[in-house]
Write a protein that binds this DNA or RNA. Structure first.
Length: 262
DNA sequence: ATGGTAGATCGTCTA
């Protein structure tokens, strides 16, 4: 069964309900994973999505912060929601499709501004979150699984506009990249986006603070689609919908897509 | 070195 998957940090699902609907209508993914919904689950506008055929939703929410949701045209059963680093935040949910494929949707902590856990507690929490992800996948190695989300790390030199200028900027520091690589290795995860698009600059996020984000193009690839090795070769057609970042009152993240023939 | 913008919520935190 071929299916198409999207991941998008929406930065308020209630404010951008119409943009989610537009993306679903224009691109028709079978499953979309959203992060930063910034809404209690019971205030997510599910009726709008159901009318478009997305009748299944699993979600976790905090009031005003965080929040992850999976909208699906296919039946999906929740199979867990981890609270790594004991933050008490809605940053993970996992669901299983009827074909047995498990989908993990993550919103990894951003980590604050200073890349030093001695002076910035949030940076330590980010590293701890990744370490606990690693240990979890190591103790229970995933199979037939897809992991997506805003991982808040751009691992490769060509995942940022300037490797040299971002080496000390949270999201691209060597220690974060190392932690992410360990998490990836522990689960046997393959980076599907880079499997499909191995060369060249690739970004999924551009700061709101730029005067002209498109012209400056100081982006980072913070949003990822991974799959376990047993299904990685079924992945194809990866793309990042940069145009969506140019919609009116946009999220600062563009949606990332991949398709799988399973 | 600093400040720039956005969202939830309504002073301030988070990104």
């Amino acid at each position: 069964m071929p299916f198409t998957l999207a991941t998008w940090n929406i930065n308020s699902i209630r404010l951008r309900e119409g943009q989610v609907a537009r993306l679903l209508q224009e691109q028709a993914p079978d499953v979309i994973c959203l992060q930063e919904c910034k809404s209690p689950v019971d205030k997510i506008p599910t009726e709008t999505f159901a009318e478009l055929g997305y009748r299944h939703m699993i979600a976790r929410g905090d009031k005003g912060y965080n929040g992850v949701a999976i909208l699906s045209r296919l039946p999906i059963k929740e199979v867990g929601a981890q609270d790594f680093a004991a933050l008490g935040h809605a940053r993970h949910i996992a669901g299983e499709l009827e074909n047995g494929v498990v989908i993990h949707n993550f919103y990894v902590p951003a980590g604050g501004d200073v890349p030093d856990r001695e002076v910035n507690e949030k940076f330590g929490q980010k590293l701890d979150y990744l370490t606990e992800m690693r240990d979890w996948f190591h103790s229970d190695r995933p199979e037939k699984s897809i992991l997506v989300g805003d991982l808040n790390i751009a691992p490769r030199e060509d995942d940022v506009w300037s490797h040299k200028q971002l080496l000390k900027v949270v999201s691209h520091t060597p220690i974060e990249v190392e932690h992410l690589a360990e998490t990836q290795d522990a689960g046997g995860w393959v980076d599907i986006t880079r499997q499909d698009i191995p060369e060249g600059q690739l970004y999924s996020w551009w700061s709101y603070r730029a005067r002209d984000w498109d012209a400056a193009d100081k982006g980072r690839r913070l949003d990822h689609i991974w799959a376990t090795t047993d299904i990685a070769n079924a992945g194809h057609s990866s793309r990042i919908l940069r145009d969506v970042r140019g919609w009116e009152r946009p999220s600062d993240h563009a949606p990332v897509f991949a398709s799988f023939d399973l």
